[in-house]
């Protein structure tokens, strides 16, 4: 026992566990205190002082170098200031009319490719996700599926879009392929993690009845991961819509092309209109998908 604790018990005014407390009669007890430091510092996060200072200096150097590399052209910024204000003004008075034809077509392309890409992406993700779950798949399949996931996750949508446009030409089909490809990486990974986390006892129990691999999948795995899969698909629907507004910049269809044109022509009021529509649709899908998720669970 530590020294202070033993002192506490020794001078305890309540005599023993069993005795009735009769504290009312006892005079306040005086402590014989030793001198305590009047100075205290919180122990630092990194105990080694040299390492701590080295890190602090390294971070400071990086910040100086990094900010120094920005090379801001202040004259150009001053020029752009007026345009920035016009853009903010565009947000307050968005112009839906003058480019409505373009906006409508772009939105239509975005929405259709979002939906089709999500559906196809989910359908492909399921087998890949199962293949990438260590508790279900044999090693070669596992490695192959993890490889696909890694490639899909590390390639930016926009880079994939460049490649697909080069292959199938301009238009929403390239966008569809891009989004479906990106969906696979996102969904398969999360699905595989979900499957790896399922209650092993349930799968064991089903397997013990002599069920085949497919039956195990159907009876033990599917019920456990289905609600999560639906939830994740809805999240991805949301993400795909937002991405569909970007890949148009490299010619893969969607509202991004409209936006790109509007910004290039400095038509900030039309650009603001497109952005506001995107934000509104994202909010709408977010609310409706959270509604669907609640229904599913």
């Amino acid at each position: 026992m530590t020294r202070p604790a033993s002192r506490t018990t020794r001078t305890s005014p309540v005599p023993s566990e069993t005795a009735e407390p009769t504290l009312r009669d006892q005079a306040p007890r005086r402590h014989q205190s030793r001198d305590w430091p009047s100075h205290w510092r919180r122990p630092p996060l990194i105990a080694d002082a040299r390492l701590r200072w080295a890190l602090i200096i390294a971070v400071a150097c990086y910040l100086v170098l990094g900010i120094g590399s920005l090379e801001v052209n202040w004259a150009r910024v001053a020029d752009g200031w007026e345009r920035g204000l016009r853009f903010l003004g565009g947000f307050l008075q968005p112009d839906f009319q003058s480019r409505w034809g373009d906006i409508e077509q772009g939105l239509m392309e975005s929405l259709t490719m979002t939906l089709t890409a999500t559906v196809v992406g989910v359908l492909i993700s399921v087998p890949i996700g199962i293949g990438a779950a260590r508790n279900l798949a044999p090693m070669p399949v596992y490695l192959l599926c993890r490889g696909i996931i890694a490639v899909s996750r590390s390639l930016q949508e926009i880079i994939v879009a460049i490649l697909f446009v080069a292959m199938v030409g301009f238009g929403p089909l390239a966008g569809f392929l891009t989004l479906a490809f990106a969906t696979i990486g996102f969904l398969s990974k999360l699905l595989a993690e979900d499957i790896e986390e399922i209650d092993a006892a349930q799968a064991e129990a089903v397997r013990a009845t002599g069920a085949s691999w497919l039956q195990v999948l159907n009876y033990a795995v599917q019920p456990q991961v289905m609600p999560r899969l639906i939830g994740l698909s809805l999240y991805r629907l949301d993400i795909n819509f937002r991405e569909s507004a970007v890949i148009g910049i490299v010619g893969a269809g969607g509202v991004g092309a409209t936006l790109n044109t509007a910004i290039d022509r400095y038509e900030y009021d039309s650009a603001a209109a497109v952005l506001l529509l995107i934000i509104a649709i994202v909010m709408l899908t977010e609310y409706s998908s959270s509604w669907v998720r609640r229904q599913v669970q």
Binding site: E71, V77, R242, A245, V246, I279, M283
Partner: peptide
Amino acid sequence: SVNALIWALLLVTILGPGL
């Protein structure tokens, strides 16, 4: 809702190209 690339598109026309 708005991708970094779109923000960049806007900002490049406002601030000029660059980091």
